[in-house]
């Protein structure tokens, strides 16, 4: 009797890139839910816009590159990029912002470098960084969290959608009345105006341990991140090293002058700390690849995040920190090759 042959191994895990990406998307759901609770339905519309743009541009790029649409469009990587970018944008940002950011991320940061697996930089962060340097005003216009002390008039889902799609608020609202800086932004501005940390913290946008609303979003992200760890989609090195180095930097400066610097807990639960640690820096393609390399890579992100937040020109630093460390990945990889079995030294 004759049989077909095949190269060993004859069993492999039934894992695929699209399954991994699907799990990452599920793990983002708590963050999205809490985000919507505090900041209204804007994120949902932004996400839909981002995903639609991502899929359209991905299809276009694949078509131009003569790649299989069926194989690559369904891998889910574009959707993850779109969601991460949408999560970074203000809920009421106009539609062209999210569309152009996503298109840039997919077309330039991803496909110009060779598509999935080849991107040197995290596409979502490239998209965000481009928007941030091009349209800083729009990107820093956030809403106040929906808590009793800060409650302003709420936009309905329909009103939110019209605002995003037209860039104009409904007649009853004014931008000044419904916007508010993010806690990181407020802290920066207030400290720059000479307030002490205690005075700055008196503002109602600061909550129990982080910014109002943001602390809960970050906790939700932490839960999603722990789920990813438990499902072995990501490894502990990157989140632990990034959050660890961020906390260490914050602790040192806080110990030196608690009046001028925010403490570690505030930093860990503000802005994109958790999202960065569990979902952005862990993008394996643009991260260092060995265990030791990942520790170095993520520690660098933590330190840079703290540096940019505290002394840099932007309120949050995760995006730039990630991009800068992406740049250092080839160097890190070069010097962190693990020792091979039977060799006394590392290569």
């Amino acid at each position: 009797m004759r049989f077909p042959t095949a190269a060993p191994p004859h069993v492999v895990v039934p894992q695929t890139v699209s399954k991994v990406m699907r799990i990452v998307i599920y793990a983002l759901l708590p963050t999205i839910a809490v985000h919507v609770v505090f900041f209204g339905p804007g994120l949902l519309i932004q996400s839909i816009l981002a995903i639609a743009t991502a899929l359209a541009t991905e299809a276009l790029a694949l078509h131009l590159r003569k790649k299989s649409l069926q194989q690559y469009l369904t891998d889910g990587t574009a959707i993850v990029t779109a969601l991460l970018l949408a999560l970074c944008l203000p809920p009421l940002a106009p539609w062209w912002l999210v569309v152009s950011g996503t298109a840039f991320a997919i077309l330039v940061a991803k496909h110009a470098f060779g598509g999935v697996g080849m991107n040197v930089f995290n596409p979502a962060m490239v998209g965000y960084a481009v928007l941030l340097v091009s349209f800083p005003a729009q990107l820093l216009t956030w809403l106040p969290p929906d808590v009793p002390e800060l409650r302003t008039e709420q936009l309905s889902f329909l009103q939110t959608a019209t605002t995003i799609l037209t860039g104009q608020l409904p007649d009853a609202f004014t931008w000044d009345a419904i916007t508010s800086p993010t806690p990181l932004d407020a802290l920066r501005t207030n400290l720059a105006m000479g307030m002490t940390m205690q005075e700055a913290h008196a503002s109602p946008i600061f909550g129990g341990f982080g910014g109002r609303g943001w602390e809960w979003i970050n906790l939700a992200t932490l839960i999603g991140g722990i789920a990813l760890l438990a499902l072995r989609i990501i490894r502990w090195q990157i989140p632990v090293a990034m959050l660890g180095s961020l906390a260490v930097c914050a602790s040192i400066m806080y110990a030196i002058d608690p009046g001028a610097y925010a403490g570690p807990v505030f930093h860990l639960t503000s802005g994109a700390s958790m999202l960065g640690a569990f979902f952005i820096a862990t993008d394996p393609v643009s991260a260092a690849t060995s265990d030791r390399g990942r520790l170095i890579y993520a520690s660098g992100i933590g330190v840079l995040t703290y540096t940019i937040r505290t002394w840099g020109g932007y309120p949050d630093g995760v995006a730039f920190a990630v991009l800068l460390m992406n740049l250092a990945v080839p160097l890190i990889d070069r010097y962190t090759v693990p020792r091979i079995y039977g060799h006394a030294k590392r290569p």
Partner: peptide
Amino acid sequence: MPCIRCGNCAE
């Protein structure tokens, strides 16, 4: 699919 450098293999 292209390698996504997840590092499962190194582990």
